[in-house]
Structures are given as structure tokens and as C-alpha cells.
Design a protein around this nucleic acid. Structure first.
Length: 833
RNA sequence: GCGAAAGUGGCGGAAUUGGCAGACGCACCAGACUUAGGAUCUGGCGGGGUAACCCAUGAGGGUUCGAGUCCCUCCUUUCGCACCA
């Protein structure tokens, strides 16, 4: 009875046993020093926010990364596979309010819990390089970078309109506003507020961030496109229209300066400084403008600026077109944005959809100034927006093609001093001030005498105080901590106040992966030589939801660090992989939908190996994965079959360990052939295709075939040396996907050392080769039969075999074979009439 | 509206280059065994037909000896962008 019990695969005893062994060996998953001579491989999964619980998305992400890391270890690489915690942020403050637990305590407890989950899952991380962003050992370098960037003019402070989430009671970066709502509170409308804020000058790198995308072939095209759109480069021209009866100029931005002779009005943003000026002496206008401002604000807050109903007001002033001296009315309109271009446009109704709509509504003149390039073509209806045309009604420029005219007009503007070619970006500078407690203190001091004074390096880190009352009211919680706020000015020594805003948590995650390379460094963020050895990251893996926020900030930070001389790489990661979501019953797992599956439950019921392997088996990693618990049970059953097969024949395998088989035949050859074909398939997939679902399927096929030959394996018909190779290689193939079972069976087979240190099995092409193959035979494109020929048979042989086949003869009887198409190794098609 | 990806059995999915559609797994059906287990083993499992065969990869066209795969039109779903001058 006891014996029978032992024949059951029991992950609940196997897995904790190995978990303990691995925990006791810190070198197992540790990277080696750069002098080790092996090629390096840096595989990174996005670090989690320590919410306290891993979810299935994490399990999937880490199962992919861990399989890759283990494979690369077995391929002989020096692998860096680290993990850390994106530990600052609002949930800790919310939890503090709810449970009266200090954010630090809450966060560290969550980290401990999630680390336990990761270890239980058998994820192979080097915990010696663990990074926790909320600890001063880490965030002091956020402060250090802030100061270096301040010195380089890449940090500045300005009063600006900011996105304010009433729920978070703090500011959001543009990137954190989704459809007019907060990225963390999908139903909370973001307000616009005026505040003094710190900014990182990401726009200084706009062009480089854009150009880099073209060379980043290891990144998904989808992510690159999203970043291109976000950066939003647009080439055009700035032109000064004179304001009639004053020396003032109205500078407009246009991408179609070639249409400027068709400009029949100039439109200003409601918040344009000139409009403010007009309003000072014109209460009636001011009232109308205020209404436009209100409409625009509402539209911005609802996130659907595109749906705004266009409204405009004529100011009664006129602007002068510098090219022809023409007077056109100056309007103010609710769809013109102050923060794009110059906040002013020229309106060309004849050749722009929007302007056409506006002009039609308000009865402004619509003029044709572009005609189709082909002579004699019919005049197209207005608005005619094609750039493939020639200028008409445009004075001296008539007859020029649009692109020529654009250049010419830019030259004229430049030499006349009333304009120039100009590139505009949608990308805005990154506002990093947050009126929150749980974040990196901004290392600046406000002195009444000396103004803004940076905290000197030797006073870093500026420690985030522990005892802080957290409330949901606006204003920085730190401003209520007198001990923190009151300080002395580093310059004059007089009394001064500390900056009380903290940094956006996306600062933390913009460079954490550099810190992994030298996590213990207390005199620098990392040693440049070490970072240069490991960077760029060879494979970064995470969710596509970070396509813009995290991944654009990280690229920016890398370029800044390069310009500070710390690193040599231009981009952080050579390859990026975005895995699909985990869904259940057709919807993303979420508490509100009640379809959340807990990883802990899965591990308890089926074990970590089955849970991880299912996450890889159920779908290709880049696609969404539908979680079906019956599928996990299926994988678990499969691992049970592997376990029984291996333990049953372990003795034979051990006996065959030191022997070598010769010229296998029959079942032995068949199994070895299947084995080596499987090795080839899986090895190839790890090189880049990453269809781990089919890798697992291939292992299942192999096991099915071995199981079908159970009688021969047991009877001695297959010699021990062959059984040894079969089982040993099977365990190696399984190691990246089911590390616990692999370790257990490795031991069972009498192998020494860790599976991870054993070389990945090599495919023996000779053994893998089939000596016969089946060739489908078609008649007129329809499959009729299959003929067996020797592998590599030439076209003649295949044709002869096909023509000799009974079914073919029967079908072709009385007809003429008009043509025979033979694709050796693939198919035969007979065209029969 | 613009752009991208996807659409294959009851379900998840396979078919890397145009060449046997449905690998592998789930669910289901039948049987064996029984220690009655969250077992295990054997067989079946797209549709129609007794069969030979015929039909089938969102719909419709096309290219080709041959199309799930390439081209065109359309439909559906998901994602991204959307007065950016």
C-alpha cells in the first residue's frame, strides 16, 4: 500500500523540498563577475508593485522570463535575472488610511509576502541584487540624478496648468491621463489646475527618442508606433502675421504654408496672451472668451477634445498676411490649444477640413489656392486637402508644386524676418512633482535670500520622515512635518524650507534595471564598468500597458545617463517582448468581475510546475490567455505521467549511465529520433519564436511515444543506455518549464549537481533524420493519397511512386495526365484531364 | 474616421517557407482495471454519408498545379490614435 502511494506524483512534497535546497544555495541563480569569460545574457521582467498578492499576469510574465533565463543558463551564458519592487506610490497611503498601518510597514510586509510567492513558484532570481525603490539606499540616487539633471538644465520649475486627480489628490503627468480620466481611477475626471511644478526636460530628447525607434528592431512594431504617435513630430512653418494698428505680431504654426494665400482668418486659442490683452479693455469680449475657455476645459476634462462643438468669436481686430499684405479677421476659437504650436493658426477653409467646417458655420470666405497637378483635371470639391497639387491664386507662387512652394515660402519668410521652418512635437516635458507622502523627496531647498538651492550631494539622501499624518486633503503631507520642512540654507546658512513635493513613481522605475547590476553600491548609483558589461538588457518582458509611460521614460533616462558619462548604450533594451493578458470567461481578471484566479490556490491544488507550465501551454505568450482550470489539471496529469515514466525506468537509466549505445534500431531508434526532433524544435523556439505552447506540446508528444513503448522499455528490448539518454534529455528539456519536477527526476536518475548547470541537450541531426517520408499526392489539387518514399527522394522517384499508386491509377483511369508537379519532400500534384 | 492585430471543432489552440487542416491539451463518449482516486490505462471524438466519397479555416471574389497561409471587397472583435493646426 505504501509502495503504491509512492507511485503518485505529489508536487506538495517535491516542490517544498527543492524550494528549501535552492534557498540554501545563493549562488545557484547568481550572476557571475564580468571576468568569468562566458557571454552575458540579461533577462528582465518588469518589476511589480508590491500590492501584497501576485496575480496571474505576474505568474505568466515571470514564467516566460524564468523559462528563458533557465534555458540560457543551460546554454552556458552568464545570466543576470534579477527582481525588485516598485515600492513607492499611492496604494500604500490608502492602506495607511484604511488600516492605520504606516506605508513603509505595509509595503515591506507586502514585499515579504510576494517574495514568498515567487520562491514558492520556483522563480530563479538572484535575490542578492534585489532592489526596493522605497528604501533610502535606492531613492537617494533618484535625488542624485535629479541634482545632476538640474545642473545640466534638464530639470526646471514652472507654474503651469497641470492635470489634477481629485481622487489621488495629486498631479498627473500627461502620460497618466487616459481619456480624460486618471490612469489609476478610470472613472475620475482629471481637472486642470495651476501649480508650481518640477519638470524633467524630456523634450530635449524628443528627436532622438523618435529616431531611435527606427533602429529598435527587437521591439514590437506596435510599441514603436505608439511611441511615435506620442512623440508626435510635425514639420511645418511659423509665420508672423502683423496685428493691424499695433506693432504686435501673431505667430502662427502651420504644416501647409503653401496654402497661406488661402488664409481667410487667423484663429487664436482662448488663453492666448494677446486675447487676454484684448479682454482687458473689452468686457463683452472677455465674457465670450471666458465661455470658450470653459468649453475647452470641459472638453479636455471629458477627454474627448475631438467631439467639441467648434465655437468662435470675432475679436474685431485684423491680422496682416506678410506674404501679400492682405487683411484677415482675427478670431478666437475653443478648439485652438494654447499648448500646441504657438497657440495660433491661420485658417485655410479651402484646404483643411476643420477650417472648412468653421468657415461654413461663420460665413467666412472659402478660397481655392491649390489645384490638382495634372493639367486639365476637373476641379475637386473643397476642401481639397491633397498635397499633390500646384498653387493657384497665390501671386508670384502660382504654378509651383506644393512641396516646392513650401520650401520657397519658408526661405522668403526667413530672409524677410517674419518666419521660419519649424518642427513641433506633441511630447511635453515630464511633470514629476506629486503632492503625496509616499515617494522620493525632491532634494531642493527654498531660501528667502538665495531662492532655489539644491541639496548638496553630501547631504543626500533627504530622508522621507517616518511619522507623517496622511490625509486625503490637497497639499503635500510633508508640508505639515515641521522637522522636515524647516532646515537651513546650504548657501547662506539662514533658515529655509525644504521642497515638500515628492517625485512621480515613474522616476523610480526609469532606471531600476541599472541598479540591479550593482545593487549594493553606496557611493554611486552603480559602477559604470559593471553596467556597461550588462547593458543593454538582452530581453525585457512585460505588459503592453507600459508601452508609453514606463518605456518612454526609461529610454529618456538612459540617454541622460549616457550624456552624464555613466553608460555607453543609447537604449536600455535590445529586445522587448510584450506578453498578452490573462483573461477568464472572456474578460480581464478583476475583482469587480469576480473572475480572479489566485496563483496560491493553483499552487496548492496542482503545484507550481503545473501552474507555470499551464501559463506557457495555454496560448502563445504574445496572445491573450484564457485561464481554464481544467487545463491546469491536464498539465498536472501530464507531469504525473512524466513522473511515473521516469521513476519506473530510473533504475534502467542509471544502469545505462556510463555506457554508450551503438547503432540503435527498431523502437530504440524510433524513440531517439523523436527525442532529437523534439530537441531541435524546442531549441529553435528559444532562439526567438518563443511559442512555448508548442514546445510543451512537443514534449507531450515525446512522452506519449515513450509511454506507448512502455513494454519495450520494461522488457529490455530497448537497451539501458538508450533509456538513459531518453530520460536524461527529457528532464533537461523539461527544466525551463517545470523546474521542480526536473530537479527531482535529475536526482532520481542519479545525476550530480544542478540541472541548471548541465548543458542544454544538443540535437544529433543524424539521429533526428527520418529515413522515409510520406508525400501527399493530389489530383487536380485534391488530396487522393499518400505515398511513402525514401527521405530525400528526387522528383523522378516521387513521381514514379505516385503514378504507381493504386488509388491514383483508379482515379486516372481513362484520362490523360497532362502535367505532373513534384515538390520534393513536400507534395505531388497530377493535372488530369 | 485613421492605424494595427486577430477571426480555424463544443473549448484553449496547431499548421515557422503556399503543399496531408485540426498537432498537443480540455470537455465529452465507450471500454478496461479498481486500491473508488482530484485516480490510472485503451479506444473514439469537425460536419454529412452504410460506403466509395463529399463538404469545411468569418463572407464573397481572385492569383496558383495547389490557398487557413498571398491579393481585392466586405463583416465582426480587440487594441492604439483621433480637432495637434
Amino acid at each position: 500500500m505504501a509502495d503504491e502511494k509512492e507511485l503518485r506524483y505529489d508536487p506538495a512534497t517535491i516542490e517544498p523540498k527543492w524550494q528549501q535546497k535552492w534557498a540554501a544555495d545563493p549562488t545557484l541563480y547568481a550572476a557571475e563577475p564580468k571576468e568569468c569569460g562566458k557571454p552575458k545574457y540579461y533577462v528582465l521582467e518588469m518589476l511589480p508593485y508590491p500590492s501584497g498578492q501576485l496575480h496571474m499576469g505576474h505568474v505568466r510574465n515571470y514564467s516566460i522570463g524564468d523559462a528563458l533565463a533557465r534555458h540560457m543558463w543551460m546554454r552556458g551564458y552568464n545570466v543576470l535575472h534579477p527582481m525588485g519592487w516598485d515600492a513607492f506610490g499611492l496604494p500604500a497611503e490608502n492602506a495607511a488610511l484604511k488600516n492605520n498601518t504606516p506605508p513603509r510597514e505595509w509595503t515591506l510586509a507586502n514585499i515579504a509576502a510576494m517574495k514568498r510567492q515567487m520562491q514558492r513558484l520556483g522563480l530563479g532570481y538572484d535575490w542578492a541584487t534585489e532592489v526596493t525603490t522605497c528604501l533610502p539606499e535606492y531613492y537617494r540616487w533618484n535625488q542624485w540624478f535629479f541634482l545632476r539633471m538640474y545642473e545640466k538644465g534638464l530639470v526646471y520649475r514652472k507654474q503651469s496648468k497641470v492635470n489634477w486627480c481629485p481622487e489621488c489628490a495629486t498631479v498627473l503627468a500627461n502620460e497618466q491621463v487616459v481619456n480624460g480620466c486618471c490612469w489609476r481611477h478610470e472613472d475620475t475626471i482629471v481637472e486642470q489646475r495651476d501649480l508650481e511644478q518640477w519638470f524633467y526636460k524630456i523634450t530635449a530628447y524628443a528627436q532622438e527618442l523618435l529616431d531611435g525607434l527606427d533602429t529598435m528592431e527587437g521591439w514590437p512594431e506596435k510599441v514603436r508606433t505608439m511611441q511615435r504617435n506620442w512623440i508626435g513630430r510635425s514639420e511645418g512653418t511659423e509665420v508672423d502675421f502683423g496685428l493691424e494698428g499695433s506693432g504686435a505680431k501673431i505667430r502662427v504654426f502651420t504644416t501647409r504654408v503653401d496654402t497661406i494665400f488661402g488664409a481667410t482668418s487667423v484663429q487664436l486659442a482662448p488663453e492666448h496672451p494677446l486675447i487676454k490683452e484684448f479682454c482687458v479693455s473689452d468686457a463683452e469680449l472677455k465674457a465670450k472668451v471666458d465661455l470658450l475657455i470653459e468649453e475647452q476645459k470641459k472638453a479636455k476634462e471629458s477627454g474627448d477634445l475631438g467631439a467639441i462643438e467648434k465655437h468662435g468669436v470675432a475679436t474685431g481686430r485684423f491680422a496682416v498676411n506678410p506674404y501679400n499684405g492682405e487683411k484677415v479677421p482675427v478670431w478666437v476659437a475653443n478648439y485652438i490649444l494654447m499648448d500646441y504650436g504657438t497657440g495660433a493658426i491661420m485658417s485655410v477653409p479651402g484646404h483643411d477640413e476643420r477650417d472648412f467646417e468653421f468657415a461654413t458655420k461663420y460665413g467666412l470666405e472659402i478660397r481655392r489656392v491649390i489645384a490638382p497637378a495634372e493639367a486639365g483635371a476637373e476641379e475637386p470639391a473643397l476642401p481639397y486637402t491633397s498635397e499633390d497639387g500646384v498653387l493657384v491664386n497665390s501671386g508670384a507662387y502660382d504654378g509651383l508644386r506644393c512641396t516646392e512652394a513650401e520650401k520657397k515660402l519658408q526661405e522668403v519668410a526667413a530672409s524677410g524676418g517674419f518666419g521660419e521652418a519649424k518642427v513641433t512635437f506633441r511630447l511635453k516635458d515630464w511633470g514629476v512633482s506629486r503632492q503625496r507622502y509616499w515617494g522620493t523627496p525632491i532634494p531642493m531647498i527654498h531660501c528667502a535670500k538665495d531662492g532655489l538651492v539644491p541639496v548638496p550631494d553630501d547631504q543626500l539622501p533627504v530622508i522621507l520622515p517616518a511619522q507623517v499624518e496622511i490625509t486625503q486633503q490637497g497639499g503635500s503631507p510633508l508640508s505639515r512635518v515641521a522637522d522636515f520642512v524647516n532646515t537651513t540654507c546650504p548657501k547662506c546658512g539662514g533658515p529655509a524650507r525644504r521642497e515638500t513635493d515628492t517625485m512621480d513613481t515613474f522616476v523610480d522605475s526609469s532606471w531600476y534595471f541599472y541598479r540591479y547590476t550593482d545593487a549594493g553600491n553606496s557611493s554611486a548609483p552603480f559602477e559604470p564598468a559593471t553596467a556597461q558589461y550588462w547593458f543593454p538588457i538582452d530581453q525585457y518582458i512585460g505588459g503592453v500597458e507600459h508601452a508609453i509611460l514606463h518605456l518612454i521614460y526609461s529610454r529618456f533616462w538612459t540617454k541622460v545617463m549616457r550624456d552624464l558619462g555613466l553608460i555607453k548604450n543609447d537604449e536600455p533594451a535590445r529586445r522587448l517582448f510584450t506578453q498578452g493578458m490573462v483573461i477568464k470567461d472572456g474578460a480581464k481578471m478583476s475583482k469587480s468581475k469576480g473572475n480572479v484566479v489566485s496563483p496560491d490556490d493553483m499552487v496548492v491544488r496542482y503545484g507550481a510546475d503545473s501552474t507555470r507550465m499551464y501559463a506557457l501551454f495555454a496560448a502563445p505568450p504574445d496572445r491573450d490567455l484564457d485561464w481554464q482550470e481544467d487545463g491546469v489539471a491536464g498539465v498536472s496529469r501530464f507531469l504525473g505521467r512524466v513522473w511515473r515514466l521516469a521513476t519506473k525506468h530510473a533504475e534502467a537509466a542509471r544502469a545505462g549511465r556510463s555506457r554508450k549505445y551503438e547503432a540503435p534500431s527498431g523502437t530504440a531508434l524510433k524513440l531517439l529520433r523523436k527525442l532529437h526532433q523534439t530537441i531541435a524544435r524546442i531549441t529553435q523556439d528559444f532562439e526567438g519564436r518563443w511559442h512555448f505552447n508548442t514546445c510543451v506540446a512537443a514534449i507531450m508528444e515525446l512522452v506519449n511515444e515513450m509511454q506507448a513503448a512502455d513494454a519495450e522499455l520494461s522488457s529490455g528490448a530497448v537497451e539501458a543506455a538508450v533509456i538513459h539518454e531518453l530520460l536524461r534529455s527529457l528532464v533537461l528539456l523539461l527544466a525551463p518549464f517545470a523546474p521542480f519536477l526536473a530537479a527531482e527526476l535529475w536526482e532520481e536518475l542519479g545525476e550530480e549537481g544542478a540541472v541548471l548547470r548541465a548543458p542544454w541537450p544538443a540535437c544529433d541531426a543524424e539521429l533526428a533524420r527520418e529515413d522515409e517520408q510520406e508525400i501527399p499526392v493530389q489530383i487536380n489539387g485534391k488530396l487522393v493519397t499518400v505515398v511513402r518514399v525514401a527521405a530525400g527522394a528526387d522528383a523522378k522517384t516521387i513521381e514514379a511512386a505516385a503514378l504507381a499508386d493504386e488509388k491514383v491509377l483508379a482515379r486516372a483511369a481513362g484520362k490523360t495526365v497532362a502535367k505532373v508537379i513534384v515538390v520534393p519532400g513536400r507534395a505531388v500534384n497530377l493535372v488530369v484531364k
